[in-house]
């Protein structure tokens, strides 16, 4: 199969967006260790015992006044319903990226290091700093930035000294998901009703659901090809596509680029009710392709009174945006044996 996403010179991220992200990163890094918090409770045996039980750890050392080092995060958890403070550098950076379109998040690394075992009765304090923001990077998940934060745990002593007892590097990828699992509507579904009726209705784009069985079709339209699934075992053509050949059962399949010629098998003039993002009426045709399969599409540049069953049509492509190109149809002549 050919692949339409050949290398391009376009940057991964709009330079203005990148500049904004990096400027915010510098500002937040400059805050240094912030979001300082004390643990809710001193290191204590009941919490240690619960943790050991949950982890299946029965080391007797932790029944005698010492806490497992890997528990360090437990002591400074926010608790149920707790929230990161407004000055938390990690959250601030995450919000910057969410607001600039990098909505998805994936934890990638968590490295903890421990200076010593903690003792029952010690009061912990934690700070968080933004360590680095690296990107944009193209990953299998999508284009995004790696955000690394550093948490540091201290025990404050009576003499005023602060002893660092543990630290943690936490790295996440904040990214724009690739289209493997496509957000089905734009804007998101929750606001669809508003969008369909509201002032932005004309900008509404209904995106096709896709999966690995069907995405070749949409990659084809983006590349200016009308692709029809073809069985690699018996050669049968098929539309709509699916994983198993209806003729021979083979799962091995490819596709051919159709000629784009066909005739109108049936049609609809849709006048009511409104279709989000579209002007009415819409002419819709069910096309018998010369290759022998059928397809639905919009008939463009044609008056409702001009449409006829049997009318020859030719495919064209309407690029909606980077992610969607729709096949549309144009009439190329009157129906065979028609009055026209």
């Amino acid at each position: 199969m050919s692949h339409p996403t050949s290398a391009t010179a376009e940057p991964l991220v709009d330079p203005a967006v990148h500049e904004q992200v990096m400027a915010e990163a510098e500002r937040i890094k400059a805050l240094g260790e912030a979001s300082e918090r004390l643990a809710r409770d001193p290191v204590n045996q009941p919490t240690i015992s619960n943790w050991l039980e949950a982890m299946g750890n029965d080391n007797p050392r932790f029944r005698q006044g010492e806490a497992p080092p890997s528990m360090v995060q437990v002591w400074t958890m926010y608790g149920l319903g707790g929230k990161a403070p407004a000055d938390d550098p990690l959250h601030a950076m995450m919000n910057v990226l969410t607001d600039t379109g990098f909505t998805a998040v994936l934890g990638t690394n968590c490295e903890q290091s421990y200076e010593r075992y903690l003792r029952v009765g010690e009061q912990l304090r934690v700070t968080t700093a933004l360590d680095s923001v690296v990107g944009p990077k193209k990953t299998a998940m999508g284009v995004g930035y790696f955000v690394t934060s550093r948490s540091t745990w201290y025990v404050d002593h009576e003499d005023g000294s602060a002893e660092q007892v543990a630290s943690m590097l936490f790295r996440v990828l904040k990214f724009v998901p690739t289209r493997a699992v496509q957000p089905p509507v734009d804007p998101p579904e929750a606001s669809v009703a508003d969008a369909a009726d509201g002032p932005d209705a004309s900008r509404f784009v209904l995106r096709p659901m896709k999966n690995r069985d069907t995405e070749f079709f949409w990659e084809g339209t983006a590349a200016g090809e009308l692709r029809v699934q073809r069985c690699n075992a018996c050669g049968v053509l098929r539309h709509p596509p699916g994983p198993a050949c209806p003729s021979c059962g083979a799962l091995d399949r490819g596709h051919v680029a159709a000629s784009g010629r066909g005739t109108v098998f049936s049609y609809v003039v849709h006048r009511h009710p409104p279709v989000p993002g579209r002007e009415l009426p819409i002419l819709l045709v069910l096309v018998d392709l010369d290759e022998g399969v059928r397809m639905v599409g919009e008939l463009v540049d044609t008056e409702p009174t001009e449409v006829e069953i049997g009318m020859p049509v030719q495919v064209d492509f309407r690029r909606v945006d980077d992610d969607l190109t729709l096949p549309v149809w144009r009439r190329t002549g009157p129906a065979e044996g028609s009055r026209a």
Binding site: L206, T214, H270, R278
Partner: peptide
């Protein structure tokens, strides 16, 4: 997935 062949076209 089935509706991808009609709805985005406007049907």
């Amino acid at each position: 997935l089935d509706n991808a062949w009609t709805y985005p076209m406007g049907l």
